[in-house]
Computed example of a mutant assay.
Amino acid sequence: MSTITTQDGTEIFFKDWGPKNAQPIMFHHGWPLSADDWDAQMLFFLANGFRVIAHDRRGHGRSAQVDFGHDMAHYAADAAAVVEHLDLRNAIHIGHSTGGGEVAAYVARHGIPADRVAKAVLVSAVPPIMARTERYPGGLPIEVFDGLRKSLADNRAQFYRDLAAGPFYGFNRDGADVKSAVIDNWWRQGMMGGALAHYQGIKAFSETDQTDDLKAITVPLLVLHGDDDQIVPYQNAGVLSADIAPNATLKLYKGYPHGMLTTNADVLNADLLAFIRG
């Protein structure tokens, strides 16, 4: 396996496919998944001549299940460590859900020198903040996230099964094309990671105010969100992120769920390619 060890001693797993002289695309996965959630995108962009990279966040997938650093600052620093190890230049950074928060934090805090980052994409992403605050009264009440923590602690395996089989992919909607293998793959990825990292990660993805990160992103930013996202409601996420970031473009997808990169990969991949080549 390809791994690096960060300055605080955490081993991070990563994949690096394709010509090393091709433009790199780095993918940042959502909670509580792994780099495997990007299979459809990595194969597509590899076939289109790009170098593709994805890592497992600390405590997730094949990375070390450490008992510290499960916050957005460490997530961004770990991504930066992979970037620096591979010396990625002119890279496109694409993040889904919590990975979108990681992208925002990475580009804002570690995107130096300037030739490191060419463009960025947030897909169904958590910024500026999911939890309700005085600044963002449209956010979700903290009780929602307390409920996630309780469900994880009570029966993580059943909680993950129910999340994947229900709202994550919109499989709870009337007439949904429910794919059991997609549910199984989500569950597999989730259970590979550590319970503590996932438990503490709920606070990271829900209570981190990334307004300043969004303001600091000056490269072209594409914000994609489904208007039937039952996990990260688009009005307080994608819409606000595109309004805050100075060089952002927003695209909403009618009826698409949180996991639209899987359920609607053909549409999303084409739109991502158009943005990258545009």
Rank of each mutant, 00 (worst) to 15 (best):
residue 2 S to D: 13
residue 3 T to L: 08
residue 6 T to I: 01
residue 7 Q to I: 13
residue 8 D to Y: 03
residue 8 D to M: 04
residue 13 F to N: 14
residue 19 P to D: 10
residue 20 K to V: 14
residue 22 A to E: 08
residue 24 P to L: 01
residue 26 M to R: 12
residue 31 W to E: 06
residue 35 A to L: 12
residue 35 A to M: 10
residue 39 D to P: 13
residue 40 A to W: 10
residue 41 Q to C: 03
residue 44 F to K: 04
residue 44 F to R: 09
residue 45 F to E: 05
residue 45 F to I: 01
residue 45 F to W: 08
residue 48 N to A: 05
residue 52 V to N: 01
residue 53 I to M: 09
residue 54 A to S: 06
residue 54 A to D: 00
residue 55 H to I: 09
residue 55 H to V: 06
residue 55 H to E: 12
residue 56 D to V: 08
residue 61 G to Q: 11
residue 62 R to C: 05
residue 63 S to V: 03
residue 65 Q to N: 14
residue 69 G to T: 03
residue 71 D to L: 01
residue 71 D to Q: 04
residue 72 M to K: 00
residue 73 A to K: 15
residue 75 Y to Q: 15
residue 77 A to E: 15
residue 78 D to A: 02
residue 80 A to Y: 05
residue 81 A to N: 09
residue 81 A to K: 02
residue 82 V to C: 07
residue 83 V to Q: 11
residue 86 L to Q: 09
residue 89 R to S: 09
residue 89 R to V: 03
residue 89 R to F: 11
residue 91 A to G: 10
residue 93 H to I: 05
residue 95 G to E: 08
residue 99 G to S: 04
residue 103 V to I: 06
residue 103 V to L: 08
residue 105 A to D: 14
residue 106 Y to N: 08
residue 106 Y to I: 07
residue 108 A to E: 11
residue 109 R to P: 11
residue 113 P to M: 13
residue 119 K to F: 00
residue 120 A to N: 03
residue 120 A to P: 02
residue 123 V to P: 08
residue 125 A to W: 11
residue 127 P to G: 10
residue 131 A to N: 13
residue 134 E to A: 14
residue 134 E to K: 15
residue 136 Y to P: 00
residue 136 Y to V: 00
residue 137 P to G: 00
residue 138 G to F: 02
residue 146 D to V: 12
residue 148 L to T: 08
residue 148 L to S: 10
residue 149 R to I: 14
residue 152 L to R: 06
residue 155 N to T: 04
residue 158 Q to I: 12
residue 159 F to L: 04
residue 160 Y to K: 07
residue 160 Y to P: 00
residue 163 L to A: 12
residue 170 G to H: 03
residue 174 D to E: 15
residue 179 K to P: 00
residue 179 K to A: 06
residue 179 K to H: 10
residue 185 N to M: 12
residue 185 N to V: 11
residue 187 W to D: 10
residue 188 R to S: 05
residue 189 Q to F: 11
residue 189 Q to Y: 10
residue 196 L to R: 15
residue 199 Y to L: 15
residue 201 G to M: 13
residue 201 G to N: 10
residue 202 I to Y: 09
residue 203 K to F: 08
residue 204 A to H: 13
residue 206 S to H: 11
residue 207 E to K: 14
residue 210 Q to M: 13
residue 211 T to W: 14
residue 214 L to G: 00
residue 214 L to P: 03
residue 218 T to W: 09
residue 219 V to S: 04
residue 220 P to A: 00
residue 221 L to S: 02
residue 223 V to S: 05
residue 227 D to N: 15
residue 232 V to D: 04
residue 238 G to F: 01
residue 240 L to V: 14
residue 243 D to M: 13
residue 244 I to N: 07
residue 244 I to Q: 09
residue 245 A to Y: 07
residue 248 A to V: 06
residue 249 T to V: 11
residue 250 L to R: 04
residue 250 L to S: 02
residue 254 K to F: 06
residue 256 Y to V: 01
residue 259 G to C: 00
residue 261 L to Y: 12
residue 264 N to M: 02
residue 265 A to P: 09
residue 270 A to W: 06
residue 270 A to L: 03
residue 271 D to I: 00
residue 273 L to I: 01
residue 276 I to M: 12
residue 278 G to M: 01
